[in-house]
Design a protein around this nucleic acid. Sequence first.
DNA 1: CATGAATGAGTATTCATTCAT
DNA 2: TATGAATGAATACTCATTCAT
Lengths: 225, 225, 225, 225
Amino acid sequence: MSSTKPNRGRPVDEGLWDRRTDEILDIAIDLFAERGYNGADTQEIANRVGVGKGTLYRYFPSKESLFLAAADRVMRRLQAHIDEKTNEQIDALLQMRVAIGAFLAFFDTHPAFAELLILERALFRDRKTPTYLEHREKNRCRWEQFYQELIDRQRIRPMPLDRLTTVISDLIYGTMFTNHISGREKSLQEQADGIVDIVFHGILTEEERIRQKPEPSSSTSSSLQ
Amino acid sequence: MSSTKPNRGRPVDEGLWDRRTDEILDIAIDLFAERGYNGADTQEIANRVGVGKGTLYRYFPSKESLFLAAADRVMRRLQAHIDEKTNEQIDALLQMRVAIGAFLAFFDTHPAFAELLILERALFRDRKTPTYLEHREKNRCRWEQFYQELIDRQRIRPMPLDRLTTVISDLIYGTMFTNHISGREKSLQEQADGIVDIVFHGILTEEERIRQKPEPSSSTSSSLQ
Amino acid sequence: MSSTKPNRGRPVDEGLWDRRTDEILDIAIDLFAERGYNGADTQEIANRVGVGKGTLYRYFPSKESLFLAAADRVMRRLQAHIDEKTNEQIDALLQMRVAIGAFLAFFDTHPAFAELLILERALFRDRKTPTYLEHREKNRCRWEQFYQELIDRQRIRPMPLDRLTTVISDLIYGTMFTNHISGREKSLQEQADGIVDIVFHGILTEEERIRQKPEPSSSTSSSLQ
Amino acid sequence: MSSTKPNRGRPVDEGLWDRRTDEILDIAIDLFAERGYNGADTQEIANRVGVGKGTLYRYFPSKESLFLAAADRVMRRLQAHIDEKTNEQIDALLQMRVAIGAFLAFFDTHPAFAELLILERALFRDRKTPTYLEHREKNRCRWEQFYQELIDRQRIRPMPLDRLTTVISDLIYGTMFTNHISGREKSLQEQADGIVDIVFHGILTEEERIRQKPEPSSSTSSSLQ
DNA sequence: CATGAATGAGTATTCATTCAT
DNA sequence: TATGAATGAATACTCATTCAT
C-alpha cells in the first residue's frame, strides 16, 4: 500500500517508513485543502512534517504523486469509515440510511477531504480517473448485490440496478460537494433523512403515483416483475 | 457615422465591444476547459481571438476576472437554455422531466461548461461564491413556488419545500459533475428517466412503503396533511 | 524655441501651438516630479492637458523628448527668475547675495523643478549633458566677467576665476539638492546669509588666517597679486 | 567539518554567505551604475556573479532591496575610507583638508558609487530617506564637536555650528555630484585646495571684509564674540 | 488635425526539483 | 540517509507608440 521503498543497506526501523508516509499524507491533505495545489509549497509541507525538502522526494517522486496519494488516502479513509459504521447486521434499509448518514458526516467532519476531491478533478483531469470514481466503481458491485437482494425480497421495487447505484451515488456526491461549497446550515441528520425520504418514497402523492405509472424497468431485474 | 461629434478621431464601432466581449468569453471558456486555469496562457487566448494581448486587457482587467466572467456566461446560457425548453404551458410534472433533461443535455452538449464550473470552485474557493450557487439561489424561489403549487394540487406529497429543491438540485448537479468526469455512456434520455422515476416514485415497494411510513413533514406544508 | 511645427494646410491660431506646448510642458513637469519618469503615464499627461494621447505626439516625438524639453523649460525659467531679481544696478556684492537667495527661493517655490533636474541626471546620463550643466556653462562667462571686475576693484581677493565660479556653483547646487531631498527647515534667508557669510569671510579667525596664509592663486589673476 | 551535527545534509560553507553577499553587492553597484536601475537585468547580475537567478533571491528578497543594500554599502565604504585617512592625530585644520580631499578622491576613484547615490534619490524618493543623508546625519554630531573645539581654541570664527556643517557638507556633496556629472578635468588636489581656500579665508579682500562686517552669529557660540 | 483603439516588447519573481555533501 | 543550497523555466501585465478613421 505504501510507496516502493528502496531497500538497500541497513534496514530501517520497521514501520517507520509507513508511519512517516501516512504522516506526510495527512499533512499534505490539510495543506492542499487550505492553499490549493499551487499554493501548497513543498517547502511548507516539509516544514510541517519536520523534515528536509529532499526527504519528501524520497517518499514521493513528485508533488503530483504526493497529491494523488493524498487523494487516495482520503478515499481509503472514507471506505474504512463507512465500513465501520455499517458493518453490523442491522436491517438492510436501515443500513442504507446509516451509510448515507456516515458518508455525509465523514466529509462534514473533514472538509479538507472534500476539498481535495474537487481539486484533484480540476487539476488532473487529463491524467487520471478521479480517485473517488475509482472507489465508486470498486464498490458498485457490492452495492448492486445489496440492492438485488432487497429487490428479491420485494422491499425495493424492481428496477435496473445501475439506476439505483448511479442515482443514489450522484445524489450523495452532489450533496457532499454542495454542502462543502455552500456551507449548508441544516443538521446532518435532517439532511440525511430528507434524502432517504425522497429516495424511499418518491415525491408523488398516492393518487398521482397511480396516474403516473412507474416506467417498467428495462434491465436485468425486469424479469422479476 | 461621421457627424460632427465633439470627439473626433477614430470612432468606435458600436456593438463591436459587446460582440468581441462575447467572442473572447467563448474562446476563454474553451481554452480554460482544455488546459485548466494555469495552463491557459493569456497569449494563447489573444492569439485565438486574433487580437494582441494588450487588447484582452482592455476588455478584462485581469486573467482572473476573465475567468470569472466566463463562468458567469456559462450560467447565463444555462438559464436561457432551460427557460427556452420549459417556457411552454405543459403539465407541471412533465415540465420537471423536461427541465431535468434540458439541464443534463446542456452540459452534455458543452462539456467545457461543466469543466469551468469545477475549475471555478477549485481555484477561487476563497474569493467568491461559486457562480453556479449564485444562480441556484436566484432560482430557488421560483422552484419553491412551483413545488408549493404541486403540493396544493395534491400531486406531490406534502413535504418541506427546501427538501425538494435541495435534494433535486444536489441530485442533478451531482449527476452533471459525475457525467462530465466519468463520461457516462448511458443515453441522456434514459438517465433523465431514471432520475425522474426514483424522485417521483421512490425505490420502495408498495408493501415496504406502508411499513416505512414516510416521516411526517415538518415545514409549511405540514398543515396540509 | 518651440518644437518644429508642421506647417502645411490651414495655418492654425497663431500662438496656439506655443501656448499649448508650454501648457504641456508645465503639466509634464509636475507629473514627472510627482511620479518619476516611468510612473508618469503619457495617458495621464494627455488627460491633464485635456487632449488625446496622439496629440501629445504631435508636439513631442517621444516621451523622452518631452521630458528633456520639460527639464529645459525649468532651466529657462530659473534663468529668467534670477535675471529678473538681479537686473537692477545695485552693489555688486549685494547682487551676489540676491542671486544666491533667488536661486534657492526658486527651487523652494517649485520643488518639482528640483526633482526634475535630479531625474534627468539619473535617467539620461548616457544620452545627454544635463540641462542644468548646459545652462551653467552658458552663464559661466558672464559670472567670470562679473568676478573679474570685483577683483579688479579689489573687493574680492585675487584668485582663479574658475575657482570662484566652480565653488560657488557647486555650493548652491549642492544646497539646492540637499534642501530638496531633506526638506531643510531653516528659513531661506538665514540659509542664504549663512552661505554668503562663509563665502565672503571664510571660517577662520583673524589670527588663524594670518597663520594660514592664503595660498597664492595660480591662474590668470595671479599677476594682480 | 563533518562532526555529528543535528543537521545532516549539505553543510554551509561558513563565511560563504558573507563573501557572496559582498560579491553580489559589488557587482550590482557596477551594473546599476552602468545601466541604471531598470536597465540592470537581474539575469545579468546573476550571470556576472556566476550563479542562478534564484540564488540572487536567496540573498536579497527583491531587486529593490538589492539596490538599497548596494547604496548602503557605498556609504559604509565611504565612511571607512574617510576614517582611514583622517584617523591620525594631525592638526585639526589640516584634518579638514584631508577629509575633504579623501571624500572627493573616493568618488573620483569609484564613479559608480556617485552614480548609485543619484539613482537612489531619483528612484526611491518616496520610499526611503536617501542613504547618504542617513550617513550625513549620523556624522553631524561628530563634526559639530570638532568645529566647536576649533571655535573654542579661536581658530575658527564663532558662528552657528549647523551653518558650518551644512554649508561644508552641501559644498562637498554638490562638488561630488557635479564632478561626477560633468567629468571635471581639474586635478583633485587643486580642487580640494580651492574649496579649502574659500572656506577658510572667504573671497573678500581685507578692506572689503572690514566694510562688510560679518553678520553676528546667532547661535550658541555668539556669546564668545 | 485629433483621436484613442490596438499593439507587443520587455521582466521580476516563484518554486518544483536536483544533487553535492 | 538526509539535507537544503542552487537552479532556471515559465508567465501575467504595463505602457509607449502607431495609425485607421
